[in-house]
Amino acid sequence: MTAGLDQETWQAALAEAFAADGVESTAWVPDKRLQPIALGLRAHGLAPITLTREEECVGYACGHRAAGGRPLVLFQCSGLGNAMNAIGSLAVPYGFGFVMVLSMRGTLGESNPSQVPLGRATVPMLDSLGIQALSLRDGAEAAVVAAGACRLAYDARQVVAIILEPELDRR
């Protein structure tokens, strides 16, 4: 699938909204669908720091938050499995709110069998830790979802996940 204009638009809109809503630092484990968001963040002076594992992104965000920052993390939903302990025994009990942008795999249009179980488990896993999952299916809603997620994370001190659903890639 090529990165079309619509994709670039919602991904750029997300990056712009995060910058406008005061995100100060981004950590990620790279992913194809997240790449245009990363490029957009870079254009706003928020070039993502690449870490080796998803739980490192969570740990990084918790430390940054503990020091007064407004961190953002980006990774594929399969990495949520890696990150569950850091979320459940650090971010949630300590009240370190931040936004996670999860690129969804394993649902509509998935071709790789290995991606399906964790994709199906993503929202239940988040729910099991009391984390709100905000599904983004319409690129036109990118900015408002990003802004609302930032409020939840940085004002209400919640870990909040924006799920980048497959429907976003419709041309």
Binding site: E55, C57, G59, C62, G63, H64, A86
Partner: peptide, 17 residues
């Protein structure tokens, strides 16, 4: 108090901030 394996990543977050 938990999150075994995450302390150094948290410290990197503090250091960057």
């Amino acid at each position: 108090g938990g999150s075994m394996g995450s302390a150094l990543a948290a410290a990197i977050g503090v250091a960057v901030r």
